Each structure stands twice: as structure tokens, then as C-alpha cells.
Amino acid sequence: MTDLMTGPTPRTVRRVSLLAVAGALLATGCGGGGHRDEAADRTPRPHASSHSSADGLPGMPPLLDPHDLYAADRPNALSPVVKDFPSRVYVPNTNSDTVSVIDPKTYKVIKTIPVGRQPQHVVPSWDLKTLWVNNDLGHSLTPLDPATGKTGKPVEVHDPYNLYFTPDGKYAVVMASMDRELVFRDPHTMAVKKTVPVSCKGVNHADFSADGRYFIVSCEFSGELLKVDTAAMKVTGKQKLPFKGAMPQDVKISSDGRTWYVADMTADGVWVLDGDKFTEPRLMRTGKGAHGLYVSRDSKSMYISNRGEGTVSVLDLPSRELVKKWKLPDGGSPDMGGVSADGKVLWLSGRYDAEVYAIDTGSGRQLARIPVGRGPHGLAVYPQPGRYSLGHTGIFR
């Protein structure tokens, strides 16, 4: 992701070179028209995404609560698969080609693991048994065993900027940003099952509807969103965000399954979207460089990291209102992360400051500021509550 504060990152340099060769893409990164600082229509409505499990994607575990997608993510509600794993924070250091492992009890780095070139995210597998390190420029995924902390043999995967899993556990979906592809793969071997070329630039982050039948993808470098049919593995919708120079980042669906939020680091806020209708979204300002989106353990709040100003905004999900803003002491660049298993700590990487922040979710107070490698990015807090993982740094249901 482009460094708005201090100039281009190594990834940006790579993108500029590749895009110049292609002669068609932009090195940064939208149509005309102004933006609106207002939330979406608050009138409740019926919607297709939270129907009974019979209406969901075949093979997807039914929701515990059709009105709360994150009902399985309550404090310390760990799956039997992960309950004996040691609690750790895994930090991919994009510019150091390492993963820092933090003990959350002591706030200390206890191990540094060499991985492939330019690790971007640490991603829990659908079955919760493996953490995959996305080595983007190394064109590989490094498997990490969260029970032992040991890595396995890297798997060759081209341009694995980000990684997701379909709700039925049938496929892994690689966000091949520079290849301009969504690549559906076997979730264990990573063998290619289907490659879906896309016309937008910089496929980036995603999330799945409550029924699992579609997912929405952000396209960072063309300021666009895609809607993808999960079972058909086909793009069914595309739209340009109504803000010049938009750079959409993290994507997250609300706990009731009715509203989607897309962080945008140049529009300095989150887009509020009706995913079912896929109509034009509205912009809610949160702060400079809005980037990561994380839901609280009670499903009532969303934490929004504003990377460009060193703050975290708190959105009340039932009312769709911003209710708090926490400022990091001495500034910082809060980026990607996750919430502790007990829900008491928000962990975020400091992308431009070679550090990680631990923030009290009750008060917003900074608990720790931990030095790590250069360019820390998509850290994973693990284990976390939930029955299965949809990928990224941990989207659990």
C-alpha cells in the first residue's frame, strides 16, 4: 500500500515498474462527483444475506445466529482445534522478510522467523490448523504451525498479496494484485482450480456475505469494488467509487449482515454500502488514511485504524454512528491487526514505524509499543474465537 506520509514503499516501486511495462495501470491508487459525509439509510429492511442456513452457500456451516454473523466470536470461545495453541501475535515484516512473534502477556518479541520476500499478511486457514504467510514478491506461501511455531516448506503461489477462504472451505482465494486475478485454489495444496482475470487494478481485501453466496473485493489502484459470485467463481458486479483518487482497503460486513464498510486511505473514511443491491456507497469520514476494520467480541463495535494520523475510530454498529476516537501517544501508523481472544486488546501494526501497538479496547489507552522488523503489515492475533476462518488476518465465523 502506498505510503502517504513518507513516500513510496518497496511494493509501490515494484508496482510502478510493472505498470509502466504494461502501459495501462496507474502507479498510485474514481469517477467524478462529490462525496457525502453521511451514513446509509437507517431504515431496517429484509435482506437476502441473513436468511436461514438452507438459503446459504451449500456446505457452509450455518450461522449460530442469523442476526449476528460474529456470534461464534465471543470472548475466549475457542474451537477445540485451537484451544491448546499458545497465544501469540504474528507480525509479517514486509521490508525485513521476517515474521516477529510476540508473547501478548509480556509484550515481548520471543522469536523472529525468516520467510520469503515481502511477506504481507499472516492468514489463518479455513480449518484453523495452519497460518499462511503471504510472501508476495517471493511468490510463495510459508505454512506456519501455530501449535509449535515451526514453519514448513513454502508452497509456490504467484503474487499472493492476500488470501481468503470460501465459507464452505472448498477453495482458497488468492488476491493476485499485480497479476490482476482472483485465483481459486485448493485450500490445502494450493493447486489452482480456477483463475478469474479482473479488469480493475490492485485487488486487495474482501469479505463474504452472511449467506456466503457472494463476496465484495476492493481494488486499490483503480478505486473500484467488485462483487463476486462465490459458487460460480465469477465477477457479477463492478463499480467505481465516487471520489477522485479513491484507494479502497479493508472490507468488512456488519454483524447484522445488512451493511458493508470499506476503508479508503485517500478518502479518509469508510464507504457505507448495501452489498445485496450493490448500489453507490456513501462516505463516512473517520480519519486520515483509514485502513483496517475489526469487529469487537460483542459484535457491537468496529475499530477503524486511521494510518495517516495515528488514531483509531470506533463505530457503533447498531446505530452506524462514530462514537469515539483514540489517539496514539507520540503518533504512529496503525495499520492491520486483530482483537485478542478475550476482546480486551486491539493489536495493530505500525506500518511506517517498525512497531506494533497494543490498545485497551475499553479505554483506548495504549498498553504497549513493541519494536519489530521494518514495514510490519498484516499481523494475526492467534488463536481467536470462531469455528472457521475466511482468511485475511482473521475473519472468523
Rank of each mutant, 00 (worst) to 15 (best):
V339A: 06
V109C: 08
L26A: 15
I395P: 02
K234W: 00
T311D: 02
V339D: 00
P143M: 03
L367E: 09
W132E: 07
W260L: 15
Y388F: 15
T166R: 09
G31D: 12
Q239W: 02
S96I: 13
T98R: 02
L25P: 11
V372S: 12
P104N: 04
S255T: 15
G375V: 13
V82K: 02
R397G: 15
V13A: 12
Y214G: 03
A48M: 07
W126V: 00
E309R: 04
M302T: 06
T142C: 01
D84F: 08
S254Y: 02
V251Y: 02
V323E: 05
G212N: 02
V157K: 07
S255L: 03
K129I: 05
E224Y: 01
S125N: 02
G308F: 06
E280L: 06
T94A: 14
R351A: 09
V251I: 13
A147L: 05
Q384G: 07
N95Y: 10
A354E: 15
R397S: 11
P92V: 12
T151P: 03
G245K: 08
R374V: 15
L19Y: 15
G33I: 13
V157D: 03
Q249D: 15
G149T: 00
S333N: 12
K194I: 03
D103R: 06
Y388W: 14
L57E: 01
S255V: 07
G350E: 11
M284G: 04
P242K: 10
H121G: 01
G29L: 10
P385K: 09
L348K: 11
L367G: 08
V13C: 01
L328D: 07
A40S: 13
E156V: 13
A232S: 05
K234H: 14
G269D: 07
M247I: 12
N95S: 12
D229Q: 06
A24T: 15
L241Y: 04
T43Q: 10
L367K: 15
P385M: 07
R185F: 04
D353I: 12
G7E: 00
V228E: 04
L346F: 12
P58T: 00
S177E: 14
L348D: 07
P10L: 05
H377G: 07
V314N: 02
T266W: 10
A27Y: 11
W132R: 02
S53G: 11
I113W: 05
